[in-house]
């Protein structure tokens, strides 16, 4: 993380320097926090459970603070900054121990890692805490790959999957690299590209209700290219995108469905669904 710069609101700004590549701890920690995210909580709880199982299989004890709720992103991106800040503050209070915070969703992990510092720029004490949490926040795939250094043993039949990565996860957390690397460890899985792979699926939080036709056109194009890719399954590490993509596939009565990366990895490596 960059050293804090003195903040003069009206000073002319230069771009934030690109962060240096992240360095990872040498050893797996004994314990981690799981921040489940609000969408996983209600719509993909099994993905959260599979994340816990994957982590436990690595010998890590998972702590799930029951008071957690949402990272605050929906309000933040809608411009309701004050509301987002209070929700963020409530989360920050839950992750006090010096354990990694693992998040099975790239965009929520990005909130923890990048945007909390913007939210608390004017509150030195909370900012310090936000920085400390940001330092030890990991997206699940990143954590499995670079901290656990997992070696996955594929036990499933040959299959072809398409990987969709959420835009903020791609740009803020480089989740696409982590997802690809994990899938490529699975001997029976062939990863297929899809057209305009790096393009947004049209979810965008409240964007999908504020600009419904544009969002609908985007998810129609995204699901068309996923169907055309020849993949038998779509995998994503972001539950928001999955809800959008699965919702559209369902409406199209397409046999193709999206699955959370955590569930896919767990099931392919012998875990029981």
């Amino acid at each position: 993380m960059n050293a804090p710069r003195t903040f003069v609101p009206q000073a002319t700004r230069t771009a934030e320097p690109d962060a240096a590549p992240r360095t990872y701890p040498e050893h797996k920690p004994e314990r981690i926090y799981l921040f489940g995210t609000c969408v996983v909580d209600l719509f993909f709880p099994e993905a959260g459970m599979d994340a816990i199982r994957l982590l436990e299989r690595e010998g890590i004890q998972v702590v799930f603070p029951q008071a957690q709720s949402c990272c605050g992103q929906p309000a933040y991106t809608s411009g309701y900054t004050d509301q987002a800040r209070e929700v963020a503050r409530a989360q920050l209070a839950l992750f006090d121990q010096d354990w990694p915070v693992v998040v099975p969703s790239g965009s929520c992990a990005g909130m923890f890692r990048h945007h909390y510092q913007e939210l608390f720029a004017g509150e030195p004490d909370t900012l310090a805490r936000a920085r400390a949490v940001a330092e030890r926040t990991y997206e699940l795939a990143e954590f499995l790959l670079h901290v656990c250094r997992v070696e996955l043993h594929d036990q499933g039949p040959p299959t072809e999957v398409a990987l969709h990565t959420s835009c903020s996860a791609r740009r803020e957390m480089h989740t696409h690299h982590h997802g690809r690397a994990l899938l490529d460890q699975l001997s029976g899985v062939r990863r297929v590209d899809h057209d305009h792979e790096s393009e947004c699926c049209g979810f965008g939080g409240t964007f999908c209700v504020r600009m419904p036709d544009i969002s609908g056109a985007m998810v129609a194009d995204k699901t068309r290219s996923l169907r055309d890719s020849g993949a038998t399954r779509v995998v994503s590490a972001d539950a928001g995108c999955l809800m959008n993509i699965n919702g559209a596939l369902k409406k199209q009565r397409a046999p193709l469905q999206g699955q959370h990366l955590a569930s896919f990895l767990w099931q392919r490596t012998g875990g029981q669904p």
Binding site: G36, D41, L42, P45, M49, P212, G216, V219, G247
Partner: peptide, 20 residues
């Protein structure tokens, strides 16, 4: 507007909080 282009999402039977 959500369901003009997508099926409605349905909450799971139990939340992650409960399962965890």
């Amino acid at each position: 507007p959500w369901t003009e282009h997508r099926g409605a999402p349905k909450p799971a039977a139990r939340s992650l909080h409960e399962l965890a």
